[in-house]
């Protein structure tokens, strides 16, 4: 499920911990509150780590799903 067009997209495929969350955090810094980031990744750790990161930082994880080896997620910036 995707929720409309994201404001920013990121390609995190092939990247391993901790780079995905560092890149997501850096991208979010440049975004306005309320805007949405969508990213694709391939490290299975992302499935567990992005939700944890969202809980820690207080941002909203709109969706995260895996299709074959590719994980797609959307985050709304709240803080």
């Amino acid at each position: 499920m995707t929720l409309g067009t994201p404001d920013i997209t990121l390609d995190l495929e092939g990247m391993l911990c901790p780079i995905p969350i560092v890149k997501v955090a850096k991208a979010l810094k440049t975004m306005d509150v309320g805007s949405v980031l969508q990213a694709t990744a391939s490290d299975p750790g992302v499935l567990i780590d992005i939700p944890a990161w969202a809980r820690t930082t207080g941002n909203e994880l709109l969706s995260i799903e895996r299709e074959d080896k590719i994980i797609t997620f959307q985050v709304r910036k709240l803080s």
């Binding site: 911990c17 901790p18 969350i21 560092v22 955090a25 990161w53 820690t56 803080s79």
Partner: peptide, 12 residues
């Protein structure tokens, strides 16, 4: 460094 960067990326 992984813990440091991960924490910093989590707003810590």
């Amino acid at each position: 460094f992984i813990i440091a960067t991960g924490a910093a990326a989590s707003g810590i």
